[in-house]
């Protein structure tokens, strides 16, 4: 049994893509950038030491799960969600929902998704995709990172849904429940932007927002001391490109998608200043893209001396400076 009228579409990011496709199926015409922007998805955080990460890393989006909660609150809609201790019960509940033709979003560890090519496989417990049917032991999956629907067997899906560790999914699933008749986009967009500006500018932690970018710029100079060898350092430096471009960001660490949100928002709430700011952010994103390409190049060439790392550090510092100005301006515009 497959939910035949579910429209599979690729999206930039798994969580915003999953939410967008569920909302569209439920009849709400909304774009991925609007979901991302209204839910204050844009973010920055640098983690130099962590129990969960084997090497320093950074994030460019809000905490997983936050987009769903924020969009629910700001658009006044409702998702029904479930977590489970018992995998058997968790898989049974999913099957029951599918048998009622309810497309259901699942949180999984990306590593166990058999349809993912080996070079993309990483243990990350916060991947989202939509189950849209089951035939025999095989689930039909709409994963927004893939051009067509994919298939996954019961065992792999169960492993992914019930992986342990940091941010363990605990079988988490959700589906749309209620979509309101009318939506106050003016309020939703305003709240979304205000919270994004707060996250980037005001959280008083040295590793979050603009402060986090500056910490990243400084600490990257220490990366050679933390790597096992040159190949390991090269791998970690090249991962900057992956984190900014390939891990579902829509390019430039979500900056291009947020620029698209601002352009769409300016038309919806009739605020032309947001359109001007969207242009600025597109240019800021081009700078992040340069960082991505530079990281890939020096990593590939093993050209990882202090001079090159300093160059990379300066490029990141420069982004911190322009983003600080940008988010201050955005905050003033929306106030």
């Amino acid at each position: 049994m497959i939910i035949s009228n579910f429209d599979h579409k690729m999206a930039a990011h798994c969580e915003s893509g999953t939410i967008t496709s569920l909302l569209k199926y439920a009849g709400l015409d909304i774009t991925e950038p609007l979901v991302f922007g209204i839910s204050s998805g844009i973010f920055f955080g640098y983690f130099h030491k962590s129990k969960s990460f084997a090497f320093p890393t950074f994030i460019v989006r809000s905490r997983p799960g936050q987009m769903r909660k924020n969009i629910e609150k700001r658009l006044g809609l409702r998702f029904t969600s479930y977590t489970f201790n018992d995998p058997v019960k968790g898989m049974y509940t999913l099957d029951q929902l599918l048998s009622k033709n309810i497309p259901t979003a699942c949180q999984v560890d990306f590593f166990y998704m058999d349809y993912v090519p080996s070079w993309e496989k990483v243990h990350i417990n916060v991947h989202f995709m939509v189950a849209v049917g089951k035939e025999g032991d095989t689930y039909k999956i709409s994963d927004s990172y893939f051009p067509t629907m994919v298939e996954l067997n019961h065992s792999a899906l169960e492993k992914g849904r019930f992986a342990g560790g940091s941010m363990s999914p605990k079988g988490f699933i959700f589906h749309t429940d209620k979509i309101p008749q009318t939506i106050d986009y003016q309020s939703a967009i305003t709240k979304g932007i205000k919270k994004a500006c707060f996250n980037m500018l005001k959280i008083p932690l040295p590793f979050i927002g603009i402060r986090g970018m500056r910490m990243f710029a400084k600490k990257i100079m220490e990366w050679p001391n933390l790597a096992r060898d040159t190949e390991h350092l090269s791998h970690e430096i090249m991962k900057i490109n992956i984190l900014l471009e390939d891990q579902g960001t829509g390019g430039a660490g979500f900056r291009f998608m947020y620029a698209t949100f601002l352009q769409q928002a300016s038309e919806i709430i009739q605020k032309p200043q947001l359109k001007e700011l969207s242009k600025q952010l597109m240019e800021i994103g081009d700078g992040w893209r340069e960082i991505s390409l530079f990281s890939a190049r020096i990593g590939k060439n093993r050209d990882l001396g202090q001079d090159k790392l300093k160059q990379l550090s300066d490029m990141i510092s420069d982004r911190a400076q322009v983003e600080e100005m940008f988010f201050n301006q955005l905050a003033k515009t929306i106030h």
């Binding site: 690729m10 930039a12 390939d246 390019g251």
Partner: peptide
Amino acid sequence: EQQMILYV
């Protein structure tokens, strides 16, 4: 081998 969505 690896397709993705880019906002442009």
